[in-house]
Amino acid sequence: MAEIAIKGVAKRFGGFTALHQVDLTISDQEFVVLLGASGCGKTTLLRIVAGLERSSQGEVWIGGRRVDHLPPRERGIAMVFQNYAVFPHLTVFENIAFGLRMKKLPQQEVERRVNRTAELMHIEQLLKRYSGQLSGGQRQRVAVARALAMEPDVILMDEPLSNLDALLRLEMRAELKGVLAASKTTTIYVTHDQVEAMSLADRIAVMHQGRIVQAASPVEVYRNPAARFVGSFIGNPPMNFIPAAKAANGSWTVAGLTLSGPKSDKPRIEFAIRPEDVDAGGEGLRATVHVIEPLGPHTLVTCDVEGGLFRAILDSNASVQVGDDLRLAPKPDRIRWFDPETTNAL
């Protein structure tokens, strides 16, 4: 049982605040991904949970025990590093066994665990090799095996797939998901890759400028962004935003279209819609087509709406030409609204 609780954790480096009062509770065996652009504080937060960095304030609890004053080795964690940190002077076997040797486990148990995790990660035939004789993907497997061999309550992963090539990343992603689910550990996984986050996470914590902006299931984060940043960061292409002017109470004018929306005192708010949530034709937003990119399953159309950039994903059969004036009808249940001042969802 290892629930992780991060309570009011802040980190300042001199005058720079890397983390502002972060709160996050992760249930036992949950897979949480910290997602954000570089410099958002996600790695700092992970390192504070690991004990490799000290927080300026706040508490970290693992399995009902306060750990922020403890060194990493007393926290019951294992970690996979971005550059793998597979020790070059030890064989693969000794790398996987490293933590077990530190715990002074009997040789028989060490061998059992190393062999079991090596088999799990499909590296049994590499046990006698050194890190210098391994490919990036194999080193990655060693790093994961080393963490799993500890049979830890918590595994922390810092961008573990970012140094692999695209194809390998896809393969490892699926494999990691299976292995970690079977190992029943609580996992915190840091990445800047939203696809990775969506595919792996039980819950995604989107971070921006040292704060967690939203922590929710992948579908929730995608469908109902809590803030404008989440909508613009997640999704490829990202959400479209168009200014909306007040027409009447609870009714807004967006690019020549009047839509019913939230009741608000503000004269202007923002209308948002995902590119795949519009249909060409009928009553819709007035759009001028700039670029057409046929992508196979669908066609990506970049147009101009109200002087701003707007991307729509249309059926590959849609007959559109550059320069066309289109009507793009937003699906009513997919429309989201944001407050332009607080940038929060309305």
Binding site: A50, G51, L52, P71, P72, R73, I77, A78, M79, F81, Q82, N83, A85, F87, F98, G99, M102, K103, R146, M150
Partner: peptide
């Protein structure tokens, strides 16, 4: 590299 020390620290080395 610093990462080796951090890995060793996490995996229990004094």
């Amino acid at each position: 590299p610093k990462e080796y020390y951090e890995a060793a620290e996490v995996f229990g080395a004094s």
